[in-house]
Design a protein around this nucleic acid. Sequence first.
RNA 1: GGGCGGGUAGCUCAGUUGGUUAGAGCGCCUCCCUUACAAGGAGGAGGGCAGGGGUUCGAGUCCCUUCCCGCCCA
Length: 893
Amino acid sequence: MPEFTLPKTYDFRDAEQRLYRWWEENGWFKPENARNPDGKPFVISIPPPNVTGVLHQGHALFVALEDLMIRYHRMKGRAALWVPGTDHAGIATQLQVEKKLLAEGKSREEIGREAFLKECWDWTHKHHDRIISQLKRLGASCDWDRERFTLDEGLSRAVREAFVRLYRMGLIYRDEYIVNWSPGLQTAVSDVEVEYTEEQGTLYYFKYPIAGHDISEGPGQGYIPVATTRPETILGDTAVAVHPDDERYRHLIGKTALVPILNRPIPIIHDTYVDMEFGTGALKITPGHDPNDFEIGRRHGLQVINIMNKDATLNENAGPYAGLDRFEARKRLWEDMKQAGLVIKEEPYTMQVPRSQRGGEIIEPLVSKQWFVNVKPMAEMGLAAVRTGRIQIIPKRFEKIYFNWLENIRPWCISRQLWWGHRIPVWYGPDGREFVAHSEEEARALAEEHYGHPVDLEQDPDVLDTWFSSGLWPFSTLGWPDDTPDLRRFYPTDVLETGYDILFFWVARMIMQGLLYTNDIPFHTVYLHGLVRDEHGRKMSKTYGNVVDPIEVMDDYGADALRFTLLTGSTPGNDMNLSIDRIRANRNFANKIWNATRFVLGNLPEGFTYRGAPDPAILQTPDKWVLHRLNETIANATRLIDAYQFGEAGRQIYDFLWGDFADWYIEAAKPRLRGDDPDPVRQTLVYVLDQTLRLLHPYIPFVTEELWQHLPHVEGEQPALIIAEWPEPRPEFHFPNQADAFEHLREVVRAIRNARSEYNVEPARKIAAVIDAPTYGESLAAMRDILALLARLDPNQITFGPAPEGEKGAALVVADTTVFLPLGGMVDIEAELARLRKQLAETEKRIASTQARLNNPNFVQKAPEKVVAQARQTLAELRAQKTRLEEQIQALR
RNA sequence: GGGCGGGUAGCUCAGUUGGUUAGAGCGCCUCCCUUACAAGGAGGAGGGCAGGGGUUCGAGUCCCUUCCCGCCCA
């Protein structure tokens, strides 16, 4: 039942929750309840937020974008499915729980693994509801019955299956390898979890003594000069390397150097990796603590010495420095070397310092035994999928970045020395032999088979990198490894939408694992969004205090305002600056729609029957204009959304609703609504509003649904906008001529308003006008009432014909129309002449440039016919206008 | 060192197959509480698209180059 008493302003607080619940209760988020449930599906897997995280603008942006796509395709008739879920976020969650324990005076070691995991699960359950309800507040139309968690039973099974398959394919192996060690977290982290920051450091130059010589013999004899940024690693050196072509040091190759202080003998080797230009041209090699040195060490069969404990203090291999923290040891060792006369100099040096993406502490390259995935074969598949276009990345430039990363891919360290996560499905026998299996039972069976009798097995204590399970997300959430109906129907998914910052972490790994396990692409399109920054482009951070909390924004301005701001303010792959001003402006937009609807509803009589798309036969010029513009807007919006240009599409609909429908059509409708044939206007008002609400629904679902529920509908219409049909342009509403006529009316109205303002005519005063319009006279006459209302003319004093001679007034020239306003003494002839001359000068300037273009034979020959024709028409119009202006100037003199 | 993005109105940004006089929001000036909306309406000022060169009938849009800011990778 339409209700005609809407409050004056839109109260989103009441509407949002109520509507969300209503949609969800009716099952409209489910593909089974689509208009065509057996039709082609459209599927997005949510980028699972950290289950213990708090909603931030990044979430708001992805929800806005993905919900837009889901709602759009749902309205287009696809069986849309948005699979929701959360991520267990290994390190992040474990840290939070440890922090909580610490506050209670406990540690995870004290309470033990089992109790700790229970704490983690409690924490998870407690926080899960919060993040989910926050996603719902944004309007996310996910199918919550299909919600998953990366650590739930099904997904854990998927993880074990993936691990076992990779292992059996020989792509997973355990190795002593140099990894990025986080001393604070006490775990290995993968390459992508390390960020390099440019920092001021020191380059330390020193003398590497040569065995059998005295350093006093000088460089190249008694010692070889070496430079390093991390002197403490000297203690782990196992060689000094020089370039084979280096004249300065070539004679030293094969000799023995002595590690300072420790006096451990090490070889002097040659390797082309050494950069002769850098430092002294000689390189100390520390395979245990530098990734490059590790590689060189492998090439040369060098010993690996680990001088560091897991907490970044030095161990017994560091001799007298054992037990010291890494930075303290650096100081002490350098002091001691100074004493020993081994120091040459120090110089300031800008270096790239590896820091933990989480926490920011300095990462130590360390050799330890970890599980790795040989990603190379999968990378090849991942590369091919994008190269051949089976998967497209938007914006396209990220494809290059993706290629570059996959082409240079290195083994992926997947083991983490944490407790919260998927336990690595490997069990060790008494002799350390590994048994990889889906379960402990299976491992036992394998072991018994191997040893010939039952043995005690011990499971690997480590867990897997969180991204290992996220990498299975698009198919594990649909039931993989089982061949479920959902997997068959909804896989591959369609679009994967996420931030460009996790292209490597997540997207690339999903593509690779999807191709490997499911023999198919996990999605055909990757849409990457940027970071949401503050209004001046600074990263939002708690310490800065510039965080714009989405919850607060929604409390103040509503979810629609936030969504529309994010959607129209962002472009693919680029960061966006979010300002409250803009959110407020879009809140105002929601209110504008609200009031436009109030107007329409308030003008429908009791018992009004809406007949849907109006019959062209009953329409007048303003109706035809607005329907023509609606057609254009529908076509543009649809094209732009299909091209993933959501922002531009949103702006066009906004402009149409506000700038065309509200500002002009509604205004033009007013006199006719009071006239004797209001029905065509009413029909058109309802129709255009209905169609526009549809176009806006994917952007601002709440206010549009709320209003649409109040609109009258035709028999058999869908019960809710969320599942209503997406509009299509209608050929019968193609009215270019009437559209032109109305545009001309707009120009005339603007000119009159402008003149009124210029001559300070009181706003309330209705004035007369004499209109001379050879081309548009008829249409202007037909719209006399509208013209009068919009330009505040006295309808009884609008006459058509040539301007009266000798009367004082203002003459306005719009194309070939002249509007004479007999303002008598209000008009200053000189000022009027000046205004006309200025307009004439502008017109002549434009005539000249248009003429010049048309005089150019190249233009006429080479430019598209349409453009040339347009130029000719413009020229004709300008000339007519010029003639008019000259006439008026003449008349005034 | 390699790669990428950005530099458009006072501020924040749009502007995607190159095509009339480059747009929006906010801010600013003038006027208006006109029964849809003051979270509003009307009118207005304000930029020639970082600099230089080039391609083209035509360039904010394509190419080259310089400068500045930011990011990614090594």
